[in-house]
Nucleic acid binder design. Structure first.
Length: 189
DNA sequence: AGCACGATGCTCT
DNA sequence: GAGCATCGTGCTT
C-alpha cells in the first residue's frame, strides 16, 4: 500500500527532510503516464541566514514559494536552460527547501530513457528533463495526487549508507556556507 | 576518466 | 549588466 508523504513531513528541519527524502519515490504523471524514480541525492537550503540560499536577500518574485507553507514545489530556471526542482520545508514564513539532485528511475524507465536520449538522470536538471518538470509546476503541492507530481514513501536508508558533502555549484558563496555539508547522497555500492 | 569550456536567457541590482 | 543550486561536448590522459 502506497503512502504519499504528508505536508507534515515537510514541516520540519530542512536537514532532516533532505536526509529522509533519500530513498523516497518521486512520482510524475506525464501525458497520463506514471513515471517515478527513487531520490538518491538532495541538498538543503536553509533560510535567509544561509548565504547559499536564494532567500538570502529576502523575498522576490522568483523565490516567493519558499516563503510559503511547506510541501510545495519550488521550481526555478537557471543557466539559461535548466529547471531545478525543490521541495519547500519548515514553517510558512521561514524560507527553506530541499533541492532534488538525482533519481534512479523505477517506473516508466522507457519513457524516461527516451526523454533523456539514453543518458542518465543523475543531476538536478537531468531529472527535471526526464520527468517533464518546468516552471508550470512552481507552487504545485507535493503532498497529494492533484498536481501531477508528488513524493511517496520509499525505503529507509540507514545512516551508514548516506554520504554527506558540501553543496555543489556555490562558487561565489562565502564561507562557512559554501562548505556546509548539506548535500546528501545514497552510497552506491 | 577527467577537465575545461561554451551555451543561453531569466532574475535581480 | 552580472551572475547563475548545470549540462553536454570535445579534448587530453
Amino acid at each position: 500500500m502506497v503512502k504519499i508523504l504528508p505536508q507534515s513531513f515537510y514541516s520540519r528541519p530542512t536537514l532532516s527532510v533532505a536526509r529522509e527524502l533519500l530513498g523516497s519515490r518521486l512520482v510524475r504523471i506525464l501525458d497520463g503516464v506514471r513515471l517515478a524514480g527513487i531520490i538518491t541525492e538532495a541538498e538543503a537550503y536553509v533560510g535567509q541566514d544561509d548565504l547559499g540560499c536564494h532567500a538570502k536577500a529576502g523575498r522576490t518574485k522568483r523565490n516567493a514559494v519558499m516563503f510559503g507553507p511547506p510541501g510545495y514545489a519550488y521550481v526555478y530556471f537557471t543557466y539559461g536552460q535548466h529547471w531545478m526542482l525543490n521541495a519547500v520545508t519548515e514553517n510558512e514564513g521561514f524560507p527553506a527547501a530541499v533541492l532534488i539532485r538525482a533519481i534512479d528511475p523505477v517506473e516508466g524507465a522507457d519513457v524516461i530513457s527516451l526523454r533523456r536520449h539514453g543518458r542518465d538522470t543523475i543531476g538536478p536538471a537531468k531529472l527535471t528533463m526526464a520527468l517533464g518538470i518546468n516552471g508550470g509546476l512552481n507552487g504545485a503541492g507535493l503532498f497529494g495526487p492533484g498536481s501531477g507530481i508528488w513524493i511517496e514513501e520509499g525505503f529507509a536508508v540507514s545512516a551508514g549508507d548516506i554520504i554527506t558533502s558540501p553543496r555543489v555549484g556555490l562558487y561565489t558563496v562565502p564561507e562557512p556556507w559554501k562548505s556546509m555539508p548539506w548535500r546528501f547522497q545514497i552510497l552506491r555500492r
